[in-house]
Structures are given as structure tokens and as C-alpha cells.
Amino acid sequence: MIKVNTEDYPWHAGMTVRALLDEKLFTFRHIIVRVNGEFVPEEDYVSTMIQDGDDVMVLHLMAGG
């Protein structure tokens, strides 16, 4: 199990940041990802592995029209 934006979410082996965003349908382009507080640049989403127990923050930067 991992945390995604403070809520429990099931973890599976081989989970990358990219895979997590796809699973969660986080399609908004304007986001910030932090894993255990560490910023993950967009170019590293595919290569960054998420470990069981990680705390993932996916911050959507939009405050409306």
C-alpha cells in the first residue's frame, strides 16, 4: 500500500510514477509530483519506481478560470 495525496492506494511491483498517474487518470499536464518529499521531474516519470509504503504527492496546479 502507498499513500497518494494522503489517501491509501494499492501498490504493485514495477509501479512507476508514469504508471501511477495513468492508473489514477491524472491527465492534467500542469502537475508537480513528489515521492517522499522529493520532486520528480516530468522527464523522470517513466524511470522513477515507486516502492511499497511510499508517500506520493501529485499536486494539480490549477486555481480556476
Binding site: 495525496n5 494522503t6 489517501e7 491524472f26 492534467f28 504527492m57 501529485v58 499536486l59 494539480h60 496546479l61 490549477m62 486555481a63 480556476g64 478560470g65
Partner: peptide, 11 residues
């Protein structure tokens, strides 16, 4: 105020 992402998605 447009707080939907801060509240509902980002928590």
C-alpha cells in the same frame, strides 16, 4: 475562489 483541485484531488 476555485479550490476544487486543492480540495478534491490534491487533498
Amino acid at each position: 475562489a476555485w479550490l476544487i483541485f486543492m480540495d478534491m484531488v490534491n487533498k
